[in-house]
Computed example of a mutant assay.
Amino acid sequence: MAYKVTIGKSGETFVLPLPQEAVGRLGLSEGQSADLHLDQTGLYLSVAEVPAEDAFDQQLEAARWIMRKYNVAREKLARE
């Protein structure tokens, strides 16, 4: 899946915003480590391994994100 993002700048650092959908699908969280790879074809982000104690928190946050995103559909289904 590809996302179009706009490059920003914060101080002396360039910033690439990650779409919320991508963050939710990958189970990312603020402060998590990642590796940035650059080659002739592009830029790649790989997510560092998450410690087991943090994995549950990330899964829970991803589930909450999905529930918020599909709240209207969930409520309609509950009424039927």
Rank of each mutant, 00 (worst) to 15 (best):
Y70T: 06
L26S: 00
T41H: 09
E21F: 02
A2E: 14
Q59L: 12
V5A: 03
S33P: 11
L60W: 15
A62Y: 05
A34S: 03
R64F: 07
N71S: 15
Q59P: 00
R79H: 07
Y44S: 12
A22G: 05
E53M: 05
S46K: 13
A52E: 15
I66V: 11
S29N: 06
Q32H: 03
Q32L: 02
A55E: 13
E53V: 11
H37F: 09
K69A: 11
T41Q: 12
K76S: 09
E80S: 08
G11M: 03
M67H: 06
L60A: 15
E75K: 11
G11V: 05
G27V: 05
E30H: 03
Y3R: 11
G27Q: 01
A52N: 07
Y70V: 01
V23Y: 01
E49P: 03
A63R: 09
Q59H: 05
T41V: 09
A63E: 12
L43F: 08
K69G: 00
K69S: 06
R25C: 02
L45F: 00
G42R: 05
Q40S: 07
P19R: 09
Y70E: 11
E30W: 01
V47E: 04
L18E: 02
G24I: 01
Y44D: 06
L77D: 04
P19A: 07
V47M: 12
A34H: 00
E49L: 08
T6A: 11
T41N: 11
Q20V: 07
D57T: 08
L60N: 14
G11L: 07
M67S: 13
Y70H: 13
M1C: 06
Y70W: 10
V47F: 15
V15Y: 02
D54I: 13
R79Q: 12
E12G: 04
L26A: 04
L28K: 00
